[in-house]
């Protein structure tokens, strides 16, 4: 017993260095270059120190789980609703009541149980080769399964969560059977094996290897910023259908307060601030994403791509159906 006490005392004196200022600890799957500028502003305005660590979502969640009630993290910031849903499923987040967030974040972009909230919107849409495809030829995600696109489609790998979320959302819309047929159609239309990232897929479209692909808009923005002359353009699919659930598939990056947060109030304030007018542009624009707060206008570059109708199904379905979606894509042979 004596020895344990001694060891514990030793360890604790080293570890228990007092923090003077208020501090919020963030586990973030959104990268440093996208969050640090905002955190710096927040610290400057409020005096609250923000400590953060970046990693992939999987390890971050495993870490939260293993740390249990002794986690240092107050807030989890990730990309993709699927991951937030999973964090909530694993009991890693706590519900927060916030009028501000209810007001700033549209209902389909936050957890119905208030455990997480979207902070930026990412639209997964079509990019086509302007010299080979007329916009009139394009219509819906489903249409890309039509044989007329045989050998004309490029896709990113099904291992990327963006495609998994897209397919998951389609399952809510069309049911598993029809979605699987559609994914099979896509696979049948592929011009080449799936690419490791959206940019590569767009470059293949631009080079004429295929005619159309599905990407997140900010990748398009980044590519066009670098090579403005590429024959590429955005098309917003599923805009003119009677189905009220239809629209462009969107996903979010978002955040929640951890179940065992040491400073839950501080974390909540930070999330509220991130959804505010002041932070929204910083948060979204730095990565050419759309603000989640409808009162905030997107970046000029982003706005130039035109406005579109979002699919209004709650993004949590991306999470709850992700496993189904992955299995479906495996069955359909989508690598």
């Amino acid at each position: 017993m004596k020895l344990t006490q001694l060891l514990a005392a030793l360890a604790l004196t080293v570890a228990a260095l007092p923090s003077l200022a208020e501090e919020v600890v963030v586990y973030s799957a959104r990268n440093e270059q996208l969050i640090k500028p905002l955190f710096d502003v927040y610290t400057r305005d409020t005096g609250v120190q923000i400590k953060f660590i970046t990693d992939k979502e999987g390890p971050l969640m495993a870490r939260l789980k293993a740390e249990g009630k002794n986690t240092p993290a107050d807030m989890l910031l990730t990309v993709d609703a699927g991951n937030l849903w999973q964090a909530s499923e694993e009991g890693l987040l706590r519900p927060i009541q916030s009028k501000t967030l209810q007001a700033n974040v549209p209902a389909h972009l936050r957890d119905p149980d208030n455990e997480w909230f979207g902070l930026s919107v990412r639209a997964r849409t079509m990019v086509y080769n302007t010299s080979k495809v007329k916009p009139a030829d394009l219509s819906t995600y489903e249409d890309l399964a039509h044989p007329k696109w045989k050998g004309r489609l490029c896709l990113r790998t099904s291992k990327k969560v963006y495609n998994q979320s897209l397919v998951a959302m389609m399952i809510t819309e069309y049911g598993e059977g029809k979605t699987e047929d559609m994914v099979r159609g896509w696979v049948g239309n592929l011009a080449t094996s799936p690419f490791p990232d959206d940019t590569k897929a767009m470059e293949a479209v631009a080079a004429g290897q295929c005619d159309v692909t599905l990407v997140n808009t900010y990748y398009f923005g980044r590519l066009m910023e670098k090579s403005p002359t590429l024959p590429l353009a955005i098309f917003w699919p599923n805009q003119n259908l009677k189905n009220k659930a239809s629209g462009v598939h969107v996903n979010i990056s978002g955040a929640g307060v951890t179940r065992h947060a040491k400073n839950p109030a501080g974390a909540q304030k930070l999330i509220e601030w991130l959804s505010s007018d002041k932070a929204q542009n910083l948060f979204a624009d730095v990565n050419l994403e759309y603000p989640v707060n409808p009162k905030v206008a997107p970046d000029k570059t982003v706005a130039a791509w035109g406005s579109f109708k979002q699919n209004l199904i709650n993004v949590k379905e991306a999470g709850s159906l992700q496993t189904k979606a992955v299995k479906l894509m495996d069955r359909a042979g989508y690598k």
């Binding site: 514990a8 360890a11 240092p72």
Partner: peptide, 24 residues
Amino acid sequence: AALDNWLIDTGRAWFGFDGTEVLK
């Protein structure tokens, strides 16, 4: 993390320790 949790709980019970990390 499991070892840490044990250390932290022990520390809290005996010394009023309020940290979240020892080894990790």
